[in-house]
């Protein structure tokens, strides 16, 4: 591929104190793709996402977002330039209403009309949220909170949607619905970078995948190839 990727990590190293977590991680996400980052528990998936967002700063390496190096930029800058995130465990603002949670997703925007339009769009995608607009976020069920977390991220019309284990803690039937919605969002043109432990599900809707093991990218391929890669199952996911 010769076009510039929306996101490119080159030789990223990230430490927590003395502990070396991400080791020379390089990856790309191109426009329109749904890229999965797979890996077992504590392999560094969330750290990768937080490094992309600027919540943690890498000790070396570059992060290019829409053609511009952003590794020195604060999180707010990256959000403004078009990242949005569905964090691990959703992180809904429990004592704020559903509406206020969605407004937080549009925090850096000032175009009233545009925001209103995007509210409509998101509420159409998640009608359940519309019924509960004035309810506190913390009173929603797990599935509804997942919708809220996605709605909150989508309200900004992101160039790149980052998701950290969107299926975690959901009942199996909800997991399936959730992945269908993610696929739908991607097919409607949103580029997605998704962290998942649930490799089968993720790869079944993904374009490409990277496999992370103790902070290193050990395998990368088209999703459909990884899906049938026996070595991947045995070695890295244990399932």
């Amino acid at each position: 591929m010769s076009e510039t990727p929306i996101l490119r990590l080159s030789n990223i190293n990230t430490h927590y104190g003395q502990i070396h977590i991400l080791q020379d991680v390089s990856l790309e996400v191109y426009s329109g793709e749904l890229v999965c980052l797979l890996g077992g528990n504590a392999s560094g998936k969330s750290t990768t996402l937080k490094t992309i967002l600027g919540i943690v700063k890498p000790t070396s390496g570059t992060i290019e977002f829409r053609g511009e190096p952003v590794q020195q930029r604060p999180t707010s800058y990256r959000i403004e330039r078009g990242m949005a995130v569905v964090p691990e465990n959703r992180r809904i603002f429990g004592s704020m209403t559903v509406e206020e949670n969605l407004e937080m997703g549009a925090y850096l925007r000032n175009d009233r009309d545009g925001i209103k339009e995007d509210f409509e769009r998101v509420l159409k995608l998640f009608p359940r949220l519309k019924e509960r607009l004035h309810q506190l976020g913390g009173t929603l069920s797990g599935g509804e909170q997942q919708m809220l977390a996605m709605g909150r991220a989508l309200i900004s019309r992101p160039h790149l949607l980052l998701m950290d284990e969107p299926s975690m803690g959901l009942a199996p039937i909800l997991v399936e619905q959730n992945f269908e919605i993610i696929q739908q969002i991607n097919q409607q043109g949103t580029t997605i970078f998704m962290v998942e432990q649930n490799a089968n599900m993720a790869l079944s809707i993904g374009t490409r995948g990277y496999v992370l093991q103790t902070g290193r990218v050990v395998l990368t391929d088209q999703a459909k190839n990884l899906l049938h890669d026996e070595q991947l199952r045995k070695a890295y996911l244990g399932r």
């Binding site: 919540i55 999180t75 995130v85 964090p87 992180r91 004592s95 937080m104 997703g105 925090y107």
Partner: peptide, 12 residues
């Protein structure tokens, strides 16, 4: 409520 989540929304 949640400092890190707020930062993830772009709050300085």
């Amino acid at each position: 409520i949640d400092r890190e989540a707020a930062a993830m929304m772009g709050v300085d």
